[in-house]
Design a binder for these strands. Structure first.
Lengths: 115, 115
DNA sequence: CGTGTAATACACCATCAGGTTAATTAATCT
DNA sequence: AGATTAATTAACCTGATGGTGTATTACACG
């Protein structure tokens, strides 16, 4: 039995599921819509399982319309995840700055190659 | 072989590790310092493993000072995680608003109990 | 009623995650 | 040298994850 926050992060710890969420952030979609980009990589039952993970984490809700299961995104748990991060952000930023300063003394290329 | 972002989220998907990060956001700490709050719940090797996960995700770096391993937080991957979320945040907020509006029509308590 | 389609359930398998205990390395302190 | 302290390694166990293929449910259509 995992706490909600852990479940949320765990659900996010998979590129397939993140892609599904990204897709859903553009609007409702059926299971097969969500599956489509992945069917060359995995089977439909695998997709169903991923959706179950997302559902268990409360990140999506599945409706039913005839034989379709229109999925909707639920931002609530995501906000909680962001909240957790924000809570510590200040400290992290400080750490980042400290590291940045340190690196600046060591190297001088400072190659800051972040997209 | 997992992508960095997945590794970061996976690392966050555990309350012990999150607590360790929280502790580290207050400053450098040795392994035993970090272990202390958990030693009633788990063994030291278990702690070491958690730290390894955090290290593999690039969330912390371990130094060495005599027989101690002072751990430091590294915010960089966390920022990437936040970045990913922010990228979709707008859509989520919209979804939240939509849900909120919907709930407002159904219930009327709207109990918005988030700290 | 039979067929096609959307999605899930079931049984199974390999790998990984999180924990254990016991042994080991490495440095410090007498 | 011997003992103590900090931390890791190794071998092992259990349960969860992520995938498979096949069977099944549920609905719509002609």
């Amino acid at each position: 039995m995992k706490d909600p926050l852990s479940r949320t992060f765990a659900a996010l710890a998979d590129p397939t599921r993140r892609a599904m969420l990204a897709r859903l952030s553009e609007g409702e979609a059926n299971v097969s819509d969500l599956a489509e980009p992945f069917l060359k990589d995995m089977s439909l039952p695998a997709v169903t399982k991923h959706l179950k993970v997302l559902e268990a984490a409360g990140l999506i809700t599945k409706g039913r319309k005839a034989q379709w299961r229109p999925c909707q995104l639920n931002g609530e748990p995501l906000r909680e995840a962001v909240d957790w991060m924000e809570e510590h952000r200040v400290a992290w930023e400080a750490q980042l700055d400290r590291l940045g300063a340190y690196l600046k003394t060591k190297t001088k290329g400072t190659r800051h190659g972040r997209k």
